[in-house]
Amino acid sequence: MLTPKQWRDRYIQILTLIDQSLNSRGCPPTLESMSTSLYLSKASVQVALVHMQRAGLVNWDRHRPQSLWVTTDGFRLYEEATDDDAKK
């Protein structure tokens, strides 16, 4: 079982992957590419994404492939994390 800090860190890793993919390819990453990048199973990434959706950090259209997007709250968390890293 992950601690709240470990969940937050995983969320930030996923948000980072989404940001990098949108900047480099113009579309969100696939579940498979996220699982490969994070060295996690696809099921673990899917569970994290569902938790993130429930927390209001990301959303997607389940009827469209690669329709994952980051919400305002997700951007806020990502910016806080990158600001914290810059201060270190």
Rank of each mutant, 00 (worst) to 15 (best):
R8F: 06
Y11W: 06
T82H: 11
P28F: 01
A81E: 01
A55D: 14
K87M: 13
S33H: 09
N59D: 15
P4E: 07
V50H: 12
Y11R: 15
E79G: 11
S33I: 14
L49Y: 01
A86I: 03
D85P: 03
W60K: 09
E79N: 14
R25V: 11
D73W: 09
V45K: 00
T3W: 05
T3R: 13
A55W: 06
D61V: 05
A43R: 12
A81M: 06
S35P: 03
D73H: 12
D9K: 13
S41Q: 04
E32Q: 10
L31E: 05
K5H: 05
V47R: 04
Q66F: 12
Q53R: 15
S41V: 07
R25G: 09
P28V: 01
C27R: 15
R10M: 12
I14K: 00
I18T: 00
L77A: 04
L17G: 12
S35N: 07
T3K: 09
Q13V: 00
P29T: 00
R62M: 11
R76D: 08
Y78I: 07
D61G: 04
L17C: 09
R62P: 12
L40Y: 07
H63M: 13
L49K: 08
R8G: 06
V50T: 10
D83V: 13
N59K: 14
Q66S: 12
H51W: 13
T30I: 09
E32W: 06
L77G: 02
R76F: 11
L77R: 06
T82S: 14
D61H: 09
L68V: 06
S24G: 07
Y78K: 11
W7C: 01
C27Y: 15
M1R: 00
R8E: 11
V45R: 08
T82G: 04
Q13D: 14
R54I: 13
A86C: 11
K5M: 07
V58A: 08
G26P: 01
T3L: 10
I14S: 05
D84A: 15
V50L: 12
M34Q: 07
Q46N: 10
V70L: 05
